[in-house]
């Protein structure tokens, strides 16, 4: 039973990490164009210059 003492905090921490990652992704606009993102992954050439990489 003593395993619980560190397993439960770890479980909660991992869950909280997932939640934080989701909230971050949402804030940085990654859910604004779900359909587009599905297609962008298939583009062959990554834009050679970095002009288009920022989402905002």
């Amino acid at each position: 039973m003593s395993g619980l003492l560190y397993l439960i905090p770890i479980a909660l921490l991992l869950g909280a990490l997932g939640l934080a990652a989701f909230l971050w992704a949402m804030r940085s606009g990654q859910f604004e164009d779900l359909d587009g993102a599905a297609h962008r992954v298939l583009f062959e050439d990554d834009t050679p210059d970095d002009r288009n990489h920022d989402n905002h």
Partner: peptide, 24 residues
């Protein structure tokens, strides 16, 4: 997806364009 790529690449060919982002 082809539309995204066509539009963005055509616009980015202009040196003066710094960003072109399509929301599908």
């Amino acid at each position: 997806g082809g539309c995204i790529s066509t539009i963005e690449r055509s616009l980015l060919k202009e040196e003066a364009v710094s960003k072109a982002r399509v929301n599908l």
